[in-house]
Design a protein around this nucleic acid. Structure first.
Length: 152
DNA sequence: GCCAACGTTGGC
DNA sequence: GCCAACGTTGGC
């Protein structure tokens, strides 16, 4: 089993949206970066655990945990011309983008702020805190995962 | 395959 | 809203 960190803008999909319907899978769609897509497609597996990270908002940081309940399948939003994630260059025969489904696991007692993550020398290798990193899906090592849980 | 121009991300 | 750092596009 592996650990991940997925970024989301809470105005789009926040940990509270997960918590409100704790048994309903959330379709994690709209990933439009090839490196992130490759990880979603090839490495994100059933039952993997995921930190839900809030970005581009007032309180930036890790907000909670979700679990993978469905592995990669064609992202429906790429075929929906009404969606902001629509991709005219994709097609049903050869879908370009994938989605996974997640369910709520828990909300952290308090949001673990980006500042605090950056202040931890042991998290230097976490892509999130590295300069210029823009991955919206990134791997978290077991050691990093457990350290972050302790911090929370 | 290079690279300039443009678009996006995301913290501040 | 700014802008640094990347990623993508498309002409050559």
């Amino acid at each position: 089993m592996a650990y991940w960190l997925f970024k989301t803008e809470p105005s789009e999909c926040s940990i509270d949206d997960f918590a409100r319907a704790p048994h309903t899978p959330v379709v994690w769609e709209g990933v439009r970066n090839y490196q992130a897509r490759n990880m979603l497609r090839d490495n994100v597996k059933q039952d993997d655990l995921v930190f839900i990270y809030h970005s581009s908002c007032k309180l930036i940081g890790i907000a909670g945990i979700a679990k993978v309940v469905r592995e990669a399948y064609p992202d429906p939003s790429q075929f929906d011309s009404a969606s902001p994630y629509f991709d005219a260059k994709s097609n049903m025969e050869k879908p370009r983008w994938v989605a996974v489904d997640l369910v709520f696991v828990e909300k952290l007692p308090a949001l673990l702020a980006l500042d605090k993550l950056k202040s931890q020398a042991k998290l230097n290798e976490l892509p999130l805190v590295q300069k210029g990193n823009r991955l919206s899906v990134m791997p978290v090592t077991s050691a990093q995962w457990h350290l972050i849980l302790e911090l929370s």
